[in-house]
Design a protein around this nucleic acid. Sequence first.
RNA 1: GGCGCCAUCGUCUAACGGUUUAGGACGGAGCCCUCUCAAGGCUCAAAUACGGGUUCGAUUCCCGUUGGCGCUACCA
Length: 490
Amino acid sequence: MNNGQRQVRVRFAPSPTGYLHVGGLRTALYNFLFARHTGGVFILRIEDTDRSRYVEGAVENLIATLGWAGLSFDEGPGKGGAYGPYVQSERLDIYRKHAGRLVEEGKAYYCFCAPERLEQMRKRQEAEKLPFKYDRECLRLAPAESAAKLQRGEPHVIRLKVPDGRAIRFADIIRESVEIDAERIDDQVLLKSDGYPTYHLANVVDDHLMGVTHVIRGEEWLSSTPKHVILYEYFGWDLPVFAHLPLLLNPDRSKLSKRQGDVAVEEYRRKGYLPEALVNFVAFLGWNPGGTKEIYSIDELIGEFTLDKVNKSGAIFNLEKLNWLNFEHLRTKPAAEVLAALRRELAGSRFSGQTFEDAYLISVIGAMRERVTSVADFILKSPYFFGQPESYEQEAVRKRWNARSPQVLTALAREFSRIPPGSGKEAFEEALHRTAAAEQVPNGELIHPLRLAVSGVSGGPGVFDIVAIIGPAETIGRIRNAIERIPAQP
RNA sequence: GGCGCCAUCGUCUAACGGUUUAGGACGGAGCCCUCUCAAGGCUCAAAUACGGGUUCGAUUCCCGUUGGCGCUACCA
């Protein structure tokens, strides 16, 4: 082990197979937080060594999503750095060179076995309930024979020659010590027949060449870490510090996947979740600084984050808590920022054709802030601020609208018509009280039908807040509309 | 199947052998507030998987059982 005093260098190394997964976001976040907390360097490296899974535009998407979440990287594609290139498909010669060096030193060997042979062997071993292990057929090839095959251009791979009869042990910050018998490890393919490296080779080579001090990645890599340890040993390189993160789980405790909810970060973005809320949420899936504070800004997370507080067991992605966190972040976000987000939502909604003044939207935000969990909710839960009610909730009509409603509301409208535009809610409240007294009905006989008339629903902000926001003229128009459209009640 | 990792309320978690009638949060239930819905305040229900050790004392340390998950590819 090394790196006592060296500057921390960590990396997030996704493969560009589409969108950024929330599990990937969490891994990226922990790397980012660790780097920022320690004054280290956060690297983005693209692991595109599987050409069949490459998705066009995925890299740009990944970078954009990371940027949205506020996870800025110091070195990486499009950003540069002294250790580039940061895209593995641009580093092929490096991997070939290193694999070749291993072959020369007898630590790896050429394998010419056809996929069909491997497949048969796999089936046989499976039938005998044995773990799959390559039978080392090609390791027994005479050097001359191997060279001849190479000469003839026969398709081949390079395999790691796993040392015999040794226990491979490595330290992990989160899991302490992990040990596995080398006997169990397959002679892993390092370089594929298409000339591309496998994850194992590329990852180890790059981590070393890029000076990575801490490998912080998902637990799914724990089982293959011994292969990496062997590689470090073979190359004569110092081991980085490993930290294998607990997995993110579906509600049924299986590894988080599509099917059981959204796993793409951009989906949450699209639904109006705030990046600070999503970041706060995933940070606490597997990590906790102790104490009872729950709402953290990203800077606070940076201040508190340490790897030894990461826990070992998988965590279920619980949407309810995310909703609450989003609500909490939304309510403390400056109105100007919420305004910008709301304008974006409106632009993509059925109200996109209309224009609203900043002051108007700010008062809508003030009225709805404690009633929404996402920015999209402003439109979903209170469309009546952006247009006339299109319908009237049946249950509310049945409960709140009676035979006298048209008459008293007409009287109320008459009172409202004397209120100058821009008046506060008190003016409407007083007008309503006057009308109720004159018509000799309880306030509720006016308040509830009024709410229904202006909003079409039974819930929402105080009715006087609503009418003050939309103004007297609009309110009167909506009252007339409602009287016309709501069928007479007994 | 083999190997590895993991195991506190439904969920996220706190507790680093005793300060614990196991704390907080989300969600749930109830009450208060109230023009509705929220928000807010108060209250309640809810967990150390099981069995052995070690110890004066185990949520905490060890072993086993059970369960869950991961890996077991020329995918990452």
